[in-house]
Amino acid sequence: MKTALKIRSQMLAGWKVALAYKFDFLVQLITNPISVIVYYFLWKAIYAYTGLDVISGYTFQQLIDYFVFSLIVGMIVYSDIDNWMEHNVVHGNVIQFFLKPISYLAEKIWFEVGLKFLDIVIVALPLIMIAITVFGTKLATSLPMTLLSFLMLILAVIIGFMMTYLTGLIAFWLIRIHGLRRMKRAFLLFLSGGIIPLTFFPSWYQQLSHFLPFEYMRFVPINAYMGRYSITATGFDNVFIVLGMQILWVVVLYLIAKFVEMQAFKKFSGAGA
């Protein structure tokens, strides 16, 4: 298909740019294990001091596994595309993306995919190896669940991308969105279960969270992978229900993004040089 060439062009561009910055990626090979080590000691102490095997629905091993998966999912879902978009606006480079025979959105998303590939290959895999050998992490054993959680991971990536794309579009109005990006990063991390699993949150928030996009970016795919959903339960314990919510959020965010995009492009074409 003809468009495949254009997609490949952007993905390759992302991959090559990532290679150019490989040292910045490689640092994560050290900082990720450090994160896990710190959590390991912290929670070992907490569990021992509390004297319980299970805290907030997780055993100590399960919680460690959760953090490892959270680091990996975080790497895959995290998007910096709003940074690139802000850079485009600040340096007056936006027009060039309209001179490429590809939509602005597609140009960004496929570039991002290429960019992340290196992260996944160089950083995520070694981290899993370390987690399995040193921290006793167990991989999922159910093939259907694994495949399902991988599908959910892809949907999570799209949700993460859309939220970041929306943030980036705001640059068309505010030009500099540094502060906004900082908040977005921190809140997405926190509300998606990146600091602690959502089971620690008050139950009223856990209920609310089912109807917000954030948990679908990290917590839900990890839960699925760890086999914590069932196919027979009712409500949000059912894997198909959460999958459905994920798909719903992908659609909703896409529509919102397209709408804001339209406004942003209108603003852009009215601006100066």
Partner: peptide, 21 residues
């Protein structure tokens, strides 16, 4: 505000466990 998120997590941790020894 970002630096208050960690402490909020701490609140939750101390609600569900005995906390840090």
């Amino acid at each position: 505000i970002n630096n208050l998120l960690g402490p909020i997590a701490t609140v939750f941790i101390y609600q569900h466990s005995a906390g840090i020894p």
